[in-house]
Simulated scan of single mutants.
Amino acid sequence: MDYPTVRAVHIGCAVISITLFAARGAMQLGGVDWRRWRWLRMAPHLNDTVLLAAAVALAVMSAQYPLVQPWLTAKLLALGVYVALGRFALKRSVPPWGRRAAFAAALASVGYIVAVARTRSVTLGLL
């Protein structure tokens, strides 16, 4: 595949990933047991696998790698924060106030990831 196609797959999967997380988080906060739908439990994992594969392909195709390019390092670190906060936000055993805070923080971290991707700047071009 060529670079524009892989980039489009990556962006499309990112949109799907964020949408699925937001939907599951909203259902979790609304008291809806989203885990009863098998597809809603499995689709994010399948989508995120394609998202990650496309990200690796883009890095190789463009010869830009985390720990070499600061903006990619920031995206990777923010991704770790997003995953950790997202897991916390979707856990049943966490009190509602903790789920709400983790959900909001996870959405903020994914917003940062998108902003860094668009600006290719750790500081989002603000400094």
Rank of each mutant, 00 (worst) to 15 (best):
F21I: 06
A22R: 13
A22P: 10
A22F: 05
A22K: 09
A22S: 13
A22T: 15
A23P: 08
R24S: 02
R24I: 00
R24D: 01
G25N: 00
G25P: 05
A26C: 12
A26L: 14
A26F: 13
M27P: 03
M27V: 08
M27D: 14
M27K: 14
L29G: 10
L29N: 12
L29Y: 04
L29T: 11
G30Q: 00
G31T: 00
V32A: 14
V32P: 11
V32Y: 15
D33R: 09
W34S: 04
W34Q: 00
W34F: 01
W34C: 05
R35F: 01
R35E: 15
R36L: 10
R36P: 01
R36I: 03
R36N: 09
W37Q: 08
R38T: 10
R38W: 12
W39E: 12
L40T: 11
L40N: 10
R41M: 13
R41L: 07
R41Y: 12
R41N: 12
M42Q: 13
M42N: 14
M42I: 01
A43R: 11
A43V: 10
A43C: 12
A43H: 00
A43D: 14
P44Y: 01
P44L: 00
P44G: 01
P44Q: 08
H45Y: 01
H45C: 06
H45K: 00
L46E: 10
L46P: 10
L46H: 12
L46Y: 05
N47W: 00
N47K: 04
D48H: 10
D48T: 01
D48Q: 02
D48E: 13
T49E: 14
T49G: 11
T49H: 09
T49P: 08
T49F: 11
V50G: 00
V50E: 05
V50T: 06
V50M: 03
L51R: 12
L51P: 07
L51F: 04
L51N: 07
L52Y: 09
A53G: 13
